[in-house]
Every structure is written in structure tokens, then in C-alpha cells.
Design a protein around this nucleic acid. Structure first.
Length: 546
RNA sequence: GCGCCCGUAGCUCAGCUGGAUAGAGCGUCGGCCUCCGGAGCCGAAGGUCAGAGGUUCGAAUCCUCUCGGGCGCACCA
């Protein structure tokens, strides 16, 4: 038609009456060809070879859309592919095995993980899994500060509680940690070390308490994360950067750039050279490094360890550090935009419409453990993942406690379990299903068509969620797919519409529907496990509560 | 004051990177099922996409400004 270099863009119409696929090709061409979009669309339609592409019909609609309707055979192919791929359905190799480091949680050992950490734990983990499913070689890392002023305050806090246990007058200092857990640590410390530190406020005493507290709190965090099904390949200690001389080395390298200067007694880096708002102090007046320096040194190790792709998942309250860290890295020759950041907003926990702040353990904030104890790991993870990271998240405990289909987690899990119960009732092993033995063109009901389309779309959803670092897209997909599954299932209520039931008397039709049920099972299970949730084969009856 | 994020149904949120009549869950209302209740099923109402300009065949989506909310702006981390 006299145009070149055009990439037709196919999309899935929202409205099923618009066919299985649609393209806006004619409209995008209208400007270049100086002709009416509909006229172009009609010409394309007339030139199209239907049979060769597995297309049953092709219509021009609206302002110039071309709508495709697939032939039954092409639809059936999709189902066969799903069942054939099974646990691999949804995986792709776009990442080509390239290494990428994802850093997240990175909580300092100063207290139990709170709800915000929980959101980040779930988010980072899901991003990692999405990357793995799209072919990346993912390294999971947790960075934490085990020295510095926060640790001193922690030691001071334990010291004060310890003295109080011995009946001495002592107070937690300004900026110290008031939570109940500090008392427990002090008591455990006393049980192990005795009363010998009574009144002793020397380096030996504080050091012992700091080390004890860090070990205890790391233990608590590890336990909570493990129970939350989040694991890491490596815990990176800030102190190791000093021990290994990497902080000094970073100072030396930065000095070579000529971007370092002295002012007001401190040593600065001209980060404004790379778009930062202001220049940053790297060495204080007393010669000690600011947080900025080890942070840069740490990210240099990521690069030098071979991770030329890196993602940091952080709370949005830390977004101020992004520009300065990147600037420091650019000064050392690393590329602009390294590392990539995924920032998430805060979490607000609500019950009865009121914010819940109290925690027995932590006092002024709700912990991850509080949530898991209240509603379980599956629900907690899903609730953290179902909202896009950059928006605020209201964790509604009432909604989370709901055990019915209204709770999106159970809605998806119910749909999965339902497929299993169908197979159980049929006395058929789901693993034995062979699409080649079924006449899939019998699946013509509108519920079935819509469902098949959704199932076929699964790999695209994963790709989009991975590319956008957006697990919520997968939650959204699963919830809507579960809705389509339930609609299909309910439409075939044997009491009302036995001809639409999966287990119809018509044996060939039943075989075809079992293939669809099997494909549903595969997609829901893969989606749930990808998000770190269980895919139960049966649901507990919620009749154990009065 | 400057920077980043957010603003979509009463509430909580999607909206596939610019497409067709803006969707879902909860809540509300109506009907059905049912052993009281809870739950379940079907359906309905509900919108100035914060506001105003702009870009173009087309804007919730991209650009500018305004308003409103959150978070940052350390020789803390």
C-alpha cells in the first residue's frame, strides 16, 4: 500500500464483541497516507489471507479498528500450549540469564520489622521472582548498618534497661529505643552475662551489649522474614566495607576525580556536577565518613561483582538519597541511572476505619509479625502486593480477616481449589490430561471463550509486571481471572444449567472442559506461587468460628 | 521555598505505557437460594477521571500551570 517500516500493534479489546484481537493500524496510517482510516482498514481487510493466519473473521469497526476473530482451532492451540508447558507456563527468557542484584528490606537491627518493611519484603521478593520468570539470574541482597550512631543508641537503650533490672536509676537517652523488646534483650543479656556490669558504663560494657542486641534483633528479623517466605542470598554488612578498606579506597578514588573539596572543615564531593541538589559532605569535620560514603562504596562493589543491572527497593522516605548516591557513582565512572530504584509509599494499618498503631512488641508501630499472626502469610503478602508501589497502602484488617470470596486472596485460592474438586469428583488425575485427546473446538460458550483468552494472556502479564517492577498487575490479573473462573463455574451449576457444567453427560464435551479446568489450575497455581502464596487444593471450611 | 510521589464510583483501588460505551471489590438497593444467622448466586443504581489550558484523528493516560494530600530537602541513617 505504499508504506514501509510500519509495526502493526495488536491488542486485546476490552469488549469481547470486538473480537479476539484488534489493531489500530489503519488509524496510525491515516496521517501518512492522507486517507480516511476506515477506507484504509477496509483495504487491509480485503487483502488479508484469513485461512493462513487462523483467523475466522475480520471486521472494520468504530473509527477504523480492525477486529480479528480467531478460528476455533487457534483457540484450542492456546490451551494445548498451556497444558504442555505446565509449571513453565508464563516463563520467558527475555533476561537471557544476565545477572542482576536486587537489594531490599535492608533494615537496621534496631527493632522488629514493621508493616512498611513487610510491604517492602513482599514487594522486593515478588520483583525478584518476576525477574527470574523472565529469564534473569537474580541475586538477593540485604544491606545493613551494624555500626555507627544508631547502634550506639541501641547499646545505650539496652544499658539503661539492664541497669533498671538491677534496680539502678537509668533512663533511655534521647533518640533511644523505647520498645518492649529492649527490655527482653536486657533480661536475656543479664541471664547470659550476670550482674557484673552494674553501674559500669565503659566501652567494654556498651560493646558487649551492642553486639548482643544486634545478634538478638538480627535473629528476630531473620525468623520473621523466613516465616514470611523471604530469603536472601547475601547479608551485606556495612562494617565490612570499613574492614575491607573499601571506604578508604572510595575516598582515594573520589579524590582523583578532582571533584572533592574542603570547606568549613569538612570534605565534600561536588555531586551537583551530576544533577544532585547540593554538594555532599563525605568526611565530617572530625574525619569520620558520613553515611553517603559507605553507601557509594557498597554500590561500587555491586558493579565490580559483575552486576551491571541493579535494583534497590526502598521506602519513598529515602528518595532523597537517590540523586546523591547516583552522583557519587557517576563521579567514579559508573553509568547514569545506576542503580535503578523502586520506591514504595508507606503503609497504614486500619481496623474499623481507625488506624492501628499499637504493638505489644514494638509499642508505637504495627509489626510485620503482628499482621502475619492476625491474618496469615498468604493474605499479608497479597495485601502488600495488590497495590502499586508508588501509592499509599491501606492495610484493612477487616477485609484481610474475611474468609469468603470477597477477600481477593481467598477468591483466587477458592477458584484454584474448585478445579481440583472437579477433578476429584470426576475421578480424573489432573496430571493425566492430554489436550490432544479432546475436541477443544467444543468450547464455544462465551464464558469459556473469555476464560481461555485470559489464560493465554498470562505470559504477557508476567512480562509487563516484570518490566514495570509491578507485581500488582499480576494480583489484578489473578483476581479478574478468578472472577472469570467463578462465573464459568457458576454458570454451569448442575442444578440449573447441567449442559454448561464441566462434568456434563456429553463425554467429548466433558473432556474438553476438563482440559480448560486443567489450564485454569496451571495458571492460578503458577501465579500464586510466583507471588509467594500457597495454591491449596482444598479450602478449609470457615465454620470453625461461632 | 525547592524536589519526588499521589488525586478515578460513598470506601479501597485497577486501567495493559495514547484507543472503541472509564472497570473491579467492598458498601447500598432489588431478586433468588437456604436449617435461624452468616455465607452463596443473579441484577441495578452510582463518574465534571481534582481543576484549567495545550499536543492530535483520538487524552484518565503525554506537556504546562493551579488546587489538595503525602514524603523528602543534615557534618542522622
Amino acid at each position: 500500500m505504499g508504506v514501509e517500516g510500519v509495526e502493526p500493534h495488536l491488542e486485546r479489546p476490552r469488549d469481547p464483541s470486538h473480537g479476539d484481537w484488534a489493531t489500530n493500524l489503519a488509524m496510525t496510517l491515516a496521517g501518512r497516507l492522507r486517507r480516511a482510516p476506515r477506507q484504509i482498514a477496509e483495504e487491509i481487510r480485503d487483502r488479508f489471507d484469513l485461512g493462513a493466519a487462523g483467523v475466522a473473521s475480520l471486521d472494520v469497526a468504530g473509527p477504523g479498528f480492525i477486529n480479528f476473530r480467531l478460528s476455533g482451532g487457534a483457540v484450542a492451540e492456546g490451551l494445548a500450549e498451556i497444558v504442555g508447558a505446565d509449571v513453565a507456563w508464563g516463563r520467558s527468557d527475555a533476561g537471557a540469564g544476565r545477572p542482576i542484584v536486587v537489594e531490599w528490606v535492608s533494615a537496621n537491627p534496631t527493632g522488629p520489622l514493621h508493616a512498611g518493611h513487610g510491604r517492602q519484603a513482599a514487594l522486593g521478593d515478588a520483583v525478584c521472582t518476576l525477574l527470574e520468570w523472565t529469564g534473569w539470574s537474580v541475586h538477593r541482597e540485604f544491606y545493613y548498618n551494624d555500626s555507627g550512631t544508631q547502634m550506639e543508641r541501641l547499646a545505650d537503650s539496652v544499658w539503661a534497661r539492664y541497669q533498671q533490672l538491677l534496680g539502678e536509676e537509668a533512663e533511655i537517652p534521647e533518640g533511644g529505643y523505647q520498645g518492649e523488646y529492649v527490655k527482653e534483650i536486657a533480661a536475656d543479656f543479664r541471664a547470659e552475662h550476670g550482674d557484673g556490669f552494674r553501674g559500669r558504663r565503659d566501652d567494654e560494657a556498651l560493646d558487649a551489649m551492642r553486639r548482643f542486641a544486634v545478634a538478638a534483633l538480627r535473629g528476630v528479623q531473620d525468623r520473621d522474614l523466613a516465616e514470611f517466605r523471604v530469603r536472601f542470598d547475601h547479608f551485606f554488612l556495612e562494617s565490612s566495607l570499613y574492614d575491607d578498606g573499601l571506604v578508604d579506597q572510595t575516598v582515594a578514588r573520589l579524590r582523583e576525580t578532582g571533584l572533592v573539596f574542603e570547606e568549613d572543615g569538612a570534605t565534600w564531593l561536588r555531586t551537583t556536577e551530576f544533577g544532585d541538589d547540593k554538594d555532599r559532605v563525605m568526611l565530617r569535620g572530625n574525619g569520620t565518613p558520613t553515611y553517603f560514603l559507605p553507601d557509594v562504596a557498597y554500590h561500587v562493589t555491586k558493579w565490580e561483582r559483575g552486576f551491571h543491572d541493579a535494583i534497590n527497593v526502598q521506602g519513598a522516605d529515602h528518595h532523597g538519597t537517590v540523586a546523591r548516591v547516583r552522583a557519587g557513582l557517576q563521579a567514579l565512572g559508573l553509568p547514569e541511572g545506576y542503580p535503578e530504584y523502586v520506591l514504595h509509599q508507606m503503609v497504614r494499618v486500619e481496623r474499623d476505619g481507625q488506624e492501628v498503631k499499637f504493638s505489644k512488641r514494638a509499642g508505637s508501630y504495627t509489626t510485620l509479625r503482628d499482621l502475619v499472626d492476625a491474618v496469615g502469610v498468604d493474605v499479608t503478602r497479597y495485601f502488600f502486593l495488590m497495590r502499586k508501589a508508588e501509592g499509599h497502602l491501606v492495610f484493612d484488617l477487616d477485609a484481610a480477616l474475611d474468609r469468603s470470596d470477597k477477600n481477593p486472596v481467598y477468591k483466587v485460592q477458592y477458584a484454584h481449589a474448585r478445579m481440583h474438586s472437579i477433578f476429584a469428583k470426576a475421578g480424573v488425575d489432573p496430571g493425566s490430561i492430554d489436550p490432544a485427546e479432546a475436541d477443544l473446538e467444543r468450547l464455544v460458550d462465551s464464558h469459556e471463550r473469555e476464560l481461555i483468552q485470559r489464560l493465554v494472556e498470562f505470559p504477557e502479564v508476567i512480562t509487563r509486571a516484570a518490566d514495570g517492577r509491578a507485581p500488582h498487575l499480576l494480583c489484578d490479573y489473578l483476581e479478574h481471572t478468578a472472577g472469570a473462573v467463578n462465573a464459568w463455574y457458576h454458570a454451569g451449576n448442575p442444578g440449573r444449567n447441567p449442559e454448561l457444567a464441566v462434568l456434563v453427560d456429553d463425554a467429548p464435551l466433558r473432556a474438553a472442559r476438563l482440559v480448560l479446568a486443567r489450564a485454569v489450575m496451571i495458571v492460578l497455581r503458577n501465579g500464586l506461587t510466583l507471588l509467594g502464596l500457597t495454591a491449596p487444593t482444598r479450602m478449609e471450611r470457615a465454620d470453625d468460628t461461632p
